[in-house]
Structure formats: structure tokens, C-alpha cells
Design a binder for these strands. Structure first.
Lengths: 371, 371
DNA sequence: CTGAAAGCGCTTACAG
DNA sequence: CTGAAAGCGCTTACAG
């Protein structure tokens, strides 16, 4: 009669209680670190737990306490333009996304939450279902850039707290993003006024990305208002990937187009590809063409020329997203106020060499494109 | 009487059943795609689900079906030697670990599992508890390089399926790693015989990493057996980070030590730092000192000189780890055979420039260290 | 094909 | 301080 419950399957709270000679309620109390159990009781329980190698079941816990202590994160596994190999691995590393997730995870850990991650392909047909399955496994969801349509978003937000990243705030959806307009205007001003460039271009990211739209518009309007020319059109449509940047420059050059004096890119990865392709064709950066990025990923300062870009507090974005989500999860029934519609984090332009500014004297550099 | 259950909290299977005019059993059946429910029934249920925005609760599901469809991954958030800033962000990107996790996640997704990730600090005092909490939330655990002592491992493996990465197989613990000995011997042979280098060194990774131990020993023994000298000692103890590599080379140079003709590094990141520091002091790689890595991370071929290294199938390691874990999770009670003790994936040496071989003519290069 | 009912492993009022 | 009992939201034999 002893074998029944301590058989092959994992021990439960009942096994612990029996072994310790107490009720499951007492076991639960020491498990949750309540202070009622007497030291004696506590010790008996602890001993039984250790002997049995007992691990409380998270599902049962969650069901009972109505909190899973898990937040879900969904992001796109993008496969960028294929340039034939040089940047083939790039999209697998997802620099930006991974770093945001790290920020979320660290913030979550501080509150006893863990991260359920789920990368999806843009073309996935079962996406809505995937996301619902995820939603069922967590207390709230953080959705990266454009993984769901606005409609899909509103649907899921009816029952699950949702925070989007670089998206648009909605009825029940909070959004966290970083400031783009001011910094892009400042960048345009810098290129036009400080460096005197008169012919510029902006290489766009995904057309459906709000950040991209704002960056392109702010940059263009500011440059034009200062009397500079800004090249536009489908030839300048990138996809946030280095391979995309390479392809655009190669295309332009093979068409015999005359390049602008400066190219502002939607993000650092695009700038990386652009600099690569320019170097490949013998153009000097910034001598012939100045190039700028956005994000300030770690590699930006190791590039040669060092990349002038706009610094986003990447991990901070993740951390803030978690905090907002956490407040939505816990507030839920109590607080009548809705979630903060939007959190906007500050950015700042980082002038390095690729725009034409002098090199920072202090930082030695690791890499440079072939000349 | 209608408001009771469709109140503010999320709808449950009971709400759906009531609305559709069927039993919860029927709802459950369409939820799980069984084929008994008649089309009529199914339609009524689907309609109710859509109208209510119902999302089945994962915890309840898991508790009832005894499967959470979640695997946990624990890895170290390492803070490498601080070299004063240049590589400060490096450890935040965790190239290698993230790529393994991506492999796990993709493989998991194919079987309807999601990933619960948890990065821990080496120095975390609550680590055992953290891991137990994680364990309770998933069906099985994948542990990266040395997150737990052997004792801790055995304890948790008593009740949870566990697969380690680059560790050592144990009683109930499967291990997935890639081959290191043969490739390091081949690398030593290549440096000594093909290039004629007679004075070598191996910059180690974490001393407690089995991979590191094997790499160092294989390399050293092979080189020595071919009559070459291999420098050893604490001066060559790295920590798998670029910053560590930088520090070692700077230290050596500042001590006025005469450098070996070739330095084999425990991994690519270390090699990156080593090349950086050598370039910083005016040494030519491979002209003055040849340098090699291990891993073949994406940046290895973009470096100038292109990095000679050993290619590991990184994502494949993650994918295989998941598959083994999945078989342990599902087999459990049924199959009497234990888990495969160990899975070893093949590696191969990739000869590029940093060892002294001629450049690959086909691949253009993006970056190179300052000369 | 469908429903009533038990049970998964916890937490938490409620009594004592 | 401790225990008996209800309940969290599902799944799944078991009858019908």
C-alpha cells in the first residue's frame, strides 16, 4: 500500500505530506514560504521534499492560483533577401530581437516570471493558432514588431494582456517604442547643415513598420525643409537586413545611377550591408558617400568607418515592456484605469565616422571594410 | 443569471459549452480536433469560441493531460573580463547560446512545444531554486554548459528529463556535444606540418568546460607528438570571451614575452579578441602570429584575416538536444531503454586566412582589424 | 456521436 | 498553527 503513490511517476504534494506526517495544506504553506508553519513542521516537510526530490507542478500551481508566472514573447524569424551567402547567417542571429528578449527576461526574472519564447515565420499559415496556444500558456504577451494584424491583436487582447513593441497602442494594447522622429530630424540636420550634403536618400525598413514610416518621413521632411534633395521611390525599399542593403546598392550601381552624397538607413544592419556593397565597388565611406544607421548595435562601433547612428536603449525597451505587461497582469480586476497607452523611450544620435565626422580618438577599432 | 460566468474574467470551456448548447466534453473534443463531433456540433462550438474569444487555459490542459508542451532551457549569462569598454556589449549578445536556443526552439515548434528560457548568473545564490521553479513549469530541461553541478544535475534528473549541452552524460542525463578531439588534432597537425610552426599555444576556455579540456589536450598532445613546442600555464587561461583574449595578449606583450608563432583559441570569440589585441600592437596576423578559433560563428568569415576555425553545427546541436529530450519525455513510462547516453555531432576544420592559408578567392570581406 | 463525472496537483478560505 | 474540503479549467475513460 506504500507503493501506490510513490511509484514511478513524479512525487506530488500528497506524497510529501504523507511522508512528513502532515496535511497537504502544511506542505503548501512551506512551499510558499508562509510564516505560519512552526519550525518543527517546516523541517519535517523540508526533509520529505528533499528525500523525494519533490518539484511542485507549475501547471497545478497556476491553475489554482490563477497566475502562471510566465510571459510569452512572439517575434518574427525573418529570412531577408538572399544575397548569395555572405549574409546568409545574419537573419539567424537576430541581433536586435535577441537583445530585446534578454531585456524582457531579466526584468521578468526579477519578479519571478519566466519567458516563453516563440519565433514565427511571417508566412506561417497557422500563425493565429500558434499565438493562441502560446497565449494559453502565459499570463500575458509581448509581441514584437508586426507579428499580428491590428484585428488579430484586438481579438487576443480581449482576453490576454498584450504589449506590442514598436507598434501602435490600441484599446487594450499597450505599446513600447523608442523615439524616432526627433533623432532622425537631428540626423538630417546634421548631414545637411554640419556636413553640407545636398543630395540624400533614406533606405527604408519594412513598409508596414511604424518606426520605419516615422524615420523615413522625419528624415525626408527635415532634409527637404533645409533645402536638400531626398531621393525616393521603390529603389530605396529595404527590409531591415544587411542583405537588403547590399542588394539596393548593387542594383543602383549596376543601373549606373549616380549615388547620393549621404544615405540614411532604417537600421544598423542595413547600413552594414550598404557600407559593404559600397566598399565592394571601391567607394569610400564617408568620402564618397556618407552612411548612417539606427539602433547602435554593438558592432556599430567596431566597424570601420565607425558607424554614425541613433542609439536606442534596446534592453531597456524589453524591460519596460515587461513592467507594463506585469502591471496589466496584476492590476487586471482591481484598477479601473487602463494600461498606459504608450511608452516612448529616448534615443540620441551618436556621431562617429561614417557620416564624415572625425574618428573618436579613444576607441580602437577592430574591423573595417575592404577598401 | 447570465452574468455570473461571463463576467469580467476570461471565458472558460463552460462558457463556451453553455453558449453552444453542448457539454464541455464536446467543446474539448473540437478543441483537440478529435473526429467524433458531428459537423453541426463542431460549427456551434467554433462559433461560440469565436464570439467569446475563448482561449483554452494551458495550465488546466497540462494538469489534465499530464503534458505541458513546454521545454525549459537554462543558460549562463556570463559577464566576461572587462577590458574597459570595447567588448562590453559582447556578453550581452551571447551569440553562441542564442543560436543554440534558436535551434531548440525551431525543433520544438515542429512538435508543438514552446521554449521557456531562463538565463542565470553564475554567481546566483538562488540558482538551485530558480531551476526547480523552471522545472515545475516544463516537461523537460535542456541545460547549457555547466549551469549545474553534477550532484545538482542528478537530483533534478530524478524527476525531470534532462539533456545537457557540452557536458557529460550521466545516469539519467543525456548529453549532446560536438566532436572536438579529432578536429583539434587536425588543426594542430595543419599548423605544425602544413605551415611549419614550431612554437604554439592554446588559449583555454572555462577550466570546468569539458569541451575546453578536450580541445586543449588534443591540440597540445598532437602538436607535441609532431615535435612542436606548446606554451602552457595560467597565462593562457581565457574565459571564452573576446575580452579575455584581449587581456591575455596585452598581458603577454606588456610582460615582454615572446609570442608563439601560432595561437589556437578555445572559441571564435576569444580569437576575435586575440586578433584585435595583436593588431593593436602592430602584429600581423597571420604573418607574425597565426590565430585560430572554434565554432565558426557568422562573423568568422567576415573578419580580416578570415578566421580559420572549426565548424560546429550550432543550430543542429540545439535541434538534436530537443529531439532527445522529446523522446525522453514521451518514452518515460513505456520504453525500458534509457536515453541515449551521448550524441556527438561532427565538426570540420575550416581553413581560411588567419592560419596562414591563402584567402578564399570567392568571398569578399567586410571587416578587417586595423593594421 | 454525446454527456456526466472523476481526476490531474496544487492553493486558499474556513473552521478549529 | 493545522487540517478538511472546495475549486481552479481542462481531458478522458465510461456509459449510453
Amino acid at each position: 500500500m506504500d507503493t501506490r503513490s510513490k511509484s514511478d511517476s513524479a512525487p506530488t504534494i500528497y506524497d510529501v505530506a504523507r511522508r512528513a506526517g502532515v496535511s497537504i495544506a502544511s506542505v503548501s504553506r512551506v512551499l510558499n514560504d508562509r510564516d505560519n508553519p512552526r519550525p518543527v513542521t517546516r523541517d519535517k516537510v523540508m526533509k520529505a521534499i528533499a528525500e523525494l526530490g519533490f518539484v511542485p507542478d507549475g501547471a497545478a500551481r497556476a491553475l489554482s492560483s490563477r497566475l502562471k508566472h510566465v510571459v510569452g514573447v512572439v517575434f518574427r524569424r525573418v529570412y531577408g533577401t538572399d544575397d548569395g551567402g555572405t549574409f546568409a547567417d545574419e537573419t539567424e542571429s537576430l541581433l536586435f530581437g535577441d537583445q530585446i528578449n534578454r531585456g524582457i527576461e531579466i526584468a521578468a526574472g526579477r519578479r519571478g516570471f519566466d519567458l516563453l519564447v516563440c519565433s514565427v515565420n511571417i508566412d506561417e499559415r497557422t500563425l493565429p493558432n500558434r499565438i493562441l496556444t502560446i497565449a494559453g500558456k502565459c499570463d500575458g504577451l509581448i509581441l514584437h514588431d508586426q507579428v499580428l494584424s491590428t484585428a488579430g491583436l484586438e481579438t487576443i487582447a480581449r482576453t490576454t494582456p498584450v504589449v506590442t513593441l514598436a507598434g501602435q497602442p490600441g484599446m487594450d494594447v499597450a505599446n513600447v517604442r523608442s523615439e524616432s522622429a526627433d533623432s532622425m530630424r537631428e540626423l538630417a540636420r546634421h548631414l545637411v547643415e554640419d556636413h553640407g550634403y545636398r543630395r540624400l536618400a533614406y533606405i527604408a525598413g519594412h513598409a508596414d513598420s511604424p518606426d520605419n514610416v516615422v524615420r523615413g518621413r522625419s528624415f525626408t521632411e527635415q532634409a527637404q525643409s533645409l533645402g536638400a534633395e531626398v531621393l525616393t521611390g521603390p529603389a530605396w525599399q529595404g527590409d531591415y537586413s544587411a542583405a537588403g542593403g547590399v542588394e539596393i546598392v548593387r542594383g543602383l550601381i549596376s543601373l549606373g545611377a549616380s549615388l547620393p552624397r549621404a544615405i540614411a538607413c532604417a537600421n544598423d544592419q542595413t547600413a552594414l550591408g550598404v557600407i559593404y556593397a559600397l566598399a565592394e565597388h571601391g567607394f569610400d565611406v564617408p568620402g564618397d558617400v556618407a552612411v548612417t544607421g539606427f539602433d547602435d548595435l554593438p558592432f556599430a562601433r567596431h566597424l570601420r568607418p565607425q558607424l554614425t547612428t541613433v542609439r536606442q536603449p534596446i534592453q531597456e525597451i524589453g524591460a519596460r515592456a515587461f513592467e507594463v505587461l506585469h502591471s496589466m497582469i496584476t492590476a487586471d480586476a482591481s484598477s479601473p484605469a487602463g494600461p498606459p497607452a504608450e511608452i516612448v523611450l529616448p534615443t540620441r544620435i551618436v556621431r562617429r565616422e561614417s557620416c564624415g565626422c572625425p574618428a573618436e580618438p579613444t576607441t580602437p577599432r577592430l574591423w573595417r571594410p575592404i577598401g
